[in-house]
Design a binder for these strands. Sequence first.
DNA 1: TGGGTCATGTAACCTGTTACATGATTAG
DNA 2: CTAATCATGTAACAGGTTACATGACCCA
Lengths: 185, 185
Amino acid sequence: MSLKHGILGLLNYGSMTGYELMKVFEDSLVFFWKAQTSQIYRDLDTIEKKGWVTSEMVIQQDKPNKKIFTVTEEGKSEFLRWLNEHSPHKTMQYRDELTMRMYFSAAGDKEKLVEELELYASLNKEFYCRLEGIEKTIAHYADKVENPQEPLYWRMAIMRGLFNAEGNIKWVNACLKLLEDERVL
Amino acid sequence: MSLKHGILGLLNYGSMTGYELMKVFEDSLVFFWKAQTSQIYRDLDTIEKKGWVTSEMVIQQDKPNKKIFTVTEEGKSEFLRWLNEHSPHKTMQYRDELTMRMYFSAAGDKEKLVEELELYASLNKEFYCRLEGIEKTIAHYADKVENPQEPLYWRMAIMRGLFNAEGNIKWVNACLKLLEDERVL
DNA sequence: TGGGTCATGTAACCTGTTACATGATTAG
DNA sequence: CTAATCATGTAACAGGTTACATGACCCA
């Protein structure tokens, strides 16, 4: 459940081609949802068959032809159904490969683990800064959407990324300290 | 990439049946990896075909027969390969449905969102307490494993869950405050 | 007599990943 | 000249989910 609903959500802002969706995902949603181009096209196909979107072919001269997708009423109500269905239990049962690797790491190479943790922390710092940058650009988009409350929700989504990154960095520091202490003994 | 490696990791502690693996997942790894029984059996099958494990059928009278799985040398080296391969980039490109829902929630029902956030926070508190409980039982298992460093790594895995839950709760509080402020205006 | 534990799975499905393929225009 | 941008996808695979199926023993 979800790339499809992300697509529906974006098409609510306006009709788009698969290519444009791909870019919006890359520019704005990549922070919490990484979408493959191949999957976008496949899912567009699927949701068109389900009747959630319709498409219109536009023939162009200079550029390749394109296919513009528009949400239908069914699509809108499916989107709202998804949006209002709350399922935090599902969110809780997450999978995290890094935690699993940590769990088993007594058997592994400690040098590599330390390197990995350090890299992970620096990626999180980078991520944190990028998100802060994006937060600042929100105001810029604010007057382009109908609903004036939109930016508030975007900000809360971004905040989740910030809290998360912060937690990851703290965790790495705590781990590095423990690993260091243990090396001294 | 991963339930298979989790299974290999557990079989390193000792040979087990699919049923026992299922219980260990449920008791100890469920905090960072939720495994379906059906998938455990299917993956055991797959990794047996790959030569990472072998199985031995044990006929029992009072109870149903069982199939005990043991890691092979290939399995052990595949496990180590996975353990030492570090890929924090992959860990970064995560997907989070709750963030996506938040992002689009200007279009949704605010009451339901608040309810969901409150439930999410309480689930995280519960989770936090459960993890603390588990952390305390680590000492108990400590002398059952060969490598005395094992518990340190378990503790770090658990810590990740704790930091995470803490971050989630803080995020919910920040969001509830923002939503409250906005309602007052 | 009903529910829990022991113990095994199959089948269909959904979602995401990887690798590949095409081909024109435009800006540096 | 070459790299980026525009614009479309297909095929095969890997990993996880849902729903179902079987059957005996033991304890309250």
